[in-house]
Amino acid sequence: METNLLKGYTRSQLALRNGNDREEIWCAYQGLIYDVSASRLWRNGKHYEHWAGQDLTDELVDAPHNALVFDRFKVIGKLL
């Protein structure tokens, strides 16, 4: 994926896409921002003990799945 063609978003902009402030539900992983809005597992911006609108890179270690789970979601930007 050509990341320099992606729109950049700050952590503050990402935080607004938490499922509460706006309809979009986004999360970041390894510098890329994913739209997880369509996932029933991210309803209301929460997925088990994880919250949308933030960078989940460090939290994946505790998850019962690996990074391939992000392949299901559309990349919509990069984290600045």
Rank of each mutant, 00 (worst) to 15 (best):
E2A: 03
T3V: 12
N4Q: 12
N4E: 11
L5S: 10
L5C: 02
L6D: 08
K7W: 08
Y9L: 14
Y9P: 10
T10S: 12
R11C: 00
S12W: 02
S12R: 13
Q13Y: 01
Q13C: 02
A15S: 15
A15R: 14
A15T: 04
A15I: 03
L16P: 02
L16S: 13
L16R: 14
L16E: 14
R17H: 15
R17Q: 15
N18Q: 04
N18L: 05
G19E: 06
N20V: 10
N20M: 11
N20T: 12
D21Y: 03
D21T: 07
R22I: 05
R22F: 07
E24M: 08
I25G: 00
I25P: 00
W26E: 00
W26P: 03
C27H: 08
C27I: 14
A28W: 10
A28F: 10
Y29K: 03
Y29Q: 04
Q30G: 01
Q30I: 03
Q30A: 12
Q30L: 10
Q30M: 13
L32T: 01
L32C: 00
I33Y: 07
Y34A: 03
Y34W: 06
Y34N: 05
V36E: 09
A38D: 15
A38H: 12
A38Q: 14
S39N: 05
R40P: 11
W42R: 00
W42Y: 02
W42F: 01
R43S: 08
R43P: 00
R43N: 10
N44P: 00
G45V: 04
G45D: 08
G45K: 09
K46L: 13
K46P: 06
H47Y: 14
H47G: 13
Y48Q: 13
Y48E: 12
Y48N: 12
E49G: 06
E49Y: 00
H50D: 02
H50I: 06
H50W: 11
W51R: 06
A52H: 10
G53T: 01
Q54C: 09
D55M: 08
L56C: 02
L56S: 01
D58V: 05
L60D: 00
L60T: 05
L60K: 02
D62N: 14
P64L: 13
H65C: 08
H65E: 07
N66C: 04
N66H: 12
N66D: 15
A67T: 03
V69N: 05
F70I: 07
F70P: 04
D71Q: 14
D71T: 13
R72F: 10
F73L: 09
K74S: 13
K74T: 15
K74P: 12
K74W: 09
K74D: 15
V75F: 06
I76F: 06
L79S: 04
